[in-house]
Design a binder for these strands. Structure first.
Lengths: 216, 216, 216, 216
DNA sequence: AATGAATGAGCTTTCATTCAT
DNA sequence: TATGAATGAAAGCTCATTCAT
């Protein structure tokens, strides 16, 4: 509750540095135990607060989870600004590669939210908003890539973004289920390949032939 | 009691028609409430049995979920045999399009299992086995497609299958989060497009603009 | 149930060799898990029968326990006949020394029955009967010992038996709680000492001074 | 709330008068129904608390039983100080005479613990500690009796204590199994007799016929 | 704002017992 | 006789939530 109104950013408020700290613990705990599996006591213990205090500030468990979802936003380092469109796209897609504990933890959290979203209207709204924002972001990057000549001009940004994200998402889940190095590396290569396929070759390293063609 | 005569697909439909009936209820209930959210009492009520009986046959809730996962196998109508390789591939990918309540229910079940798998070794093994079988199936279909000239010969079946499934999986989740007609139709088109891109055009309709112009 | 009427002994019947086998398993299981802790399934598994069969023959769990109590009678080797009165007494008291797994198991069974008896009228009757029989047995042995001049003539058999058994019983429980060699040896010595104190010295090995006096 | 001012005996009566109240109920309930027979709901009902509260404070049923065992310590009025050594010994042994409902209840609790101890390492440790403390107490009383000339000087306190307690324990169980006045009176007399046998006659009444005539 | 003891509904699981075969 | 699937009451325990302090 009590979302401060006057401070600027929505992610980290001046008067409530504690709040985000709590929500980060919640995100981690959900990734570790699932939404239903996470208990208020675990949150209390992790944050050093009491269950009473947690409920006092977030109303109830649902409010806490919702707040965590709103706060967790997107995968770490997913949308750092700067660089050419293609390099930004690569960086964004790199956040779908589970090569660090941090990334893996975030995706565990996400898949839990996705599962719950399938049967919870409000959660679904949150998650859909996140996806929409992400898709728009990719669209804009692609559009700018086209303007700069880094991306093939025959592409439609509005059509190309969604499959790209879907592919990345599918690969993320695959890595969640098969958490070995080979799977992670293959996912990374597949995503690089996907970028290569939409690139003109003017700014990207490769424009070669078939994706890793290796047959007779 | 009644020993089914014609089916030879499932693991043990032999003398336990009741068993599979229970597991179908479990699959549905997990899709509806999540694994943690499903209660043994719900299962008992849905099946018309008592909780004692459920536990008598499946050991405990975990055993029940595991059995359901093993039984749920794959998305409905996912791998019906017959037809040309490309049409079989289309049919398989069509099971990732959530255009019926049955499909949607199955994918709700699946995403729940995927979430739980991220933190449960045994579930992960099950799910990984399912994915591996699915990938092999797609690989074989593509290989046969290549042999028959329906699929581009420059493709490597072993490499092409995984991204295809990942794309489809990502789209399935997208449809779960945004369960509207537009999203479903777009997912369907994206998958058809993906098939078109690997087809030669001899057997399937072609839109001509392959991601990159086919090379020598 | 169905106690055969025509066969001779009450302990082992001609037509039902199985019955006593079952009850021995029950005795062992009670010693291992307690009365409440023992389950009908354990009995079924141990005997190779089904729970239905067990209940068919003994009515219910209570009947089974009662039958086991009646059958278990006394500590193993407790009342083998033969030998002089004093040696028979020593042999009987030796059954209170937990120097074998068999004895220890029996006493675990017994203490469980004793605990339950404290709040179960019928069990109490059984146990009291066993104690009475045991006391009479000791009384008779002492009386014969007096007649033969092996036991001090100033003793009253009716008064001396009970404390002797009580001492032995108390020591048995002590050994149950402290199952180490020292405690067992000390119990054995204490009982030998008790026998020595009632003996005249004519037939027993010792009539020495204070019981293990070792001070000053 | 109310911090007791004069008692300093128990472990933690400090700021938890409620705790001991609960444990007394537990002791009584175990005596009445046995450890397995006592339910958490019974405890909740008897104490006026909820099962959640009981588990909140004691962790689980096992923790509750263990706490009760630690708290129950010894038989009521067993070790009140004051008086001559022999009178203190008599008073202590009197706690093995089940002539009041309170005593009987305590011994029912105890025999239940003894039974459970036979197959529970931790319970056994508790019970053994209680027995050791009790034996030491008796040893000290006997030693002081010897110093004061009330107890025969040829006795070894370290050796005499254990049989005395074993005898008393065996009699207590006997009274549990045969809860009639005669048995109780006989137990009382047997114990008085045992005291007489170790007394010199200077301070206590003596029947003169020590088990064996005192030697030079 | 913060606490944590207290709650009680509701969960999974066990188990003696029944009964159609 | 013998079976074992089925039962359902009841157990121990968990946990989000409340509330007096």
């Amino acid at each position: 509750m009590t979302i401060p109104s006057e401070t600027g950013t929505s992610t980290d408020t001046a008067r409530e540095p504690r709040r985000n700290e709590v929500l980060q613990h919640v995100t981690a705990l959900i990734g570790e135990h699932g939404i239903d599996g996470m208990t208020m006591r675990q949150v209390a213990h992790a944050t050093g607060l009491s269950t009473g205090t947690i409920n006092y500030h977030f109303g109830n468990k649902r409010g806490l989870v919702l707040a965590a979802l709103a706060s967790a936003g997107e995968a770490p380092e997913g949308s750092a600004p700067g660089g050419s469109p293609l390099s930004r796209l690569r960086r964004l897609l790199a956040s779908f590669v589970l090569d660090s504990q941090e990334r893996r933890a975030w995706w565990q959290f996400w898949v839990e939210v996705a599962a719950q979203s399938a049967r919870d209207e409000e959660l679904r709204r949150h998650e859909r908003a996140r996806q929409t924002a992400q898709r728009r972001h990719v669209e804009e990057v692609i559009e700018e890539g086209i303007r700069r000549g880094e991306v093939r001009a025959d592409l439609d940004a509005a059509t190309a973004a969604e499959p790209l994200i879907a592919l990345a998402t599918g690969l993320a889940i695959l890595q969640l289920t098969a958490p070995d190095e080979v799977t992670v590396r293959r996912a990374s290569e597949t995503l690089e390949d996907a970028v290569r396929k939409i690139a003109t070759g003017n700014a990207a390293s490769d424009s070669g032939d078939a994706p890793r063609a290796s047959n007779g």
